[in-house]
């Protein structure tokens, strides 16, 4: 291959050296771009939101009449409820699908279709899942006669679970793939059936990896608002849910509501404080995922 274009400054020895150095600097600058944005965002959020953060903020309802007293209690509770329900739905479904695909599925066309389908589902915009939920739960509401079903925690949890399932399944499949072959063969050689091998040998060593996938899925769901707003989740709620059929709000929806208000105290300060809480939970999730990932590596080697 020829590396020359006659007459260009890039062809002289000095020109090539200068270009090399500047190219390197530009590449480094591109990475720094990410750092700068992150630092700027963090610094601004703390500047605007820190003053509103207190235990009172966590345990008060979002009052409109007394902006300075407004808190995130119902949204925080809604988020915790939603995460709990999503967990109950996605753990069996996600791990079950991954086990089928990795351990039981025959290598045929139908399995390939399932796999390709999961990859494609991961790229479907979140709002489209919201539309699926609107139609499905709208239909269910007509059938059962309960009009608020579409706006219930249950509807939100099911819709969000479908949205994060592809992520959870793929991550769990990776975890199952990482279990060494000789563990499986050893178990089968001792007379275990396929399911005994899976349940006693493969799953226990894949658990940390699968948990990492579930945490990643949850951290996607915890920040997502679009499907829930499409379903009709309430943007302004002063009480917190007591059961899966109750109305609810979540942190991202509360932030969305506040960030659109004209008052500076809501638009800037209260939103920033709620974002700090949301990001705090996310960081905890991420830390747990990183910890589990290293635990998974240790267990397998």
């Amino acid at each position: 291959m020829a590396f020359s274009a006659a007459g260009s400054p890039k062809t002289t020895a000095r020109g090539r050296l200068v270009f090399e150095t500047s190219f390197r600097i530009v590449c480094t600058a591109a990475v720094l771009f990410g750092f700068v944005v992150l630092c700027f965002l963090a610094q601004q959020l703390i500047k605007d939101g820190w003053g509103s953060l207190s235990f009172k903020f966590l345990e008060s309802p979002p009052s409109s009449n007394y902006p300075e007293r407004a808190g995130i209690y119902p949204a925080l509770m809604g988020t915790i409820w939603l995460m709990g329900l999503i967990l109950i739905l996605t753990v069996p479904l996600g791990i079950g699908s991954a086990i089928y695909l990795e351990e039981f599925a025959p290598r045929n066309g139908f399995t390939r279709i399932i796999q390709l389908n999961i990859t494609n589902l991961a790229g479907v915009p979140s709002i489209v899942y919201g539309l699926l939920g609107v139609a499905a739960f709208g239909f269910a509401a007509e059938a059962t006669g309960s009009q608020d079903l579409r706006k219930s925690l249950l509807a939100g949890a099911v819709t969000m679970s479908l949205m994060i399932l592809p992520l959870v399944i793929t991550a769990s499949q990776e975890a199952l793939k990482a279990v060494p072959r000789y563990h499986r063969e050893g178990s089968l050689a001792l007379g275990a059936t396929r399911w005994e091998m899976i349940s006693r040998i493969v799953i226990p060593s894949a658990i940390p990896g699968m948990m990492t996938g579930i945490i990643l899925g949850l951290s996607r769901a915890i920040g997502e608002a679009a499907p829930l707003i499409t379903l009709g989740a309430v943007t302004y709620l002063t009480f917190s849910p007591r059961g899966p059929l109750d109305l609810y709000s979540v942190l991202p929806i509360q932030i969305f509501d506040w960030a659109q208000r004209p008052e500076q105290i809501f638009q800037r300060e209260k939103s920033a404080a709620a974002i700090i809480v949301l990001m705090g939970v996310l960081l905890l999730f991420n830390a747990a995922a990183i910890f589990l990932r290293s635990a998974a590596r240790k267990r397998l080697h």
Partner: peptide, 12 residues
């Protein structure tokens, strides 16, 4: 971390 920031935060 940057990829994990919720989109609502980017809106804000």
């Amino acid at each position: 971390l940057l990829a994990g920031i919720p989109t609502i935060v980017y809106g804000f």
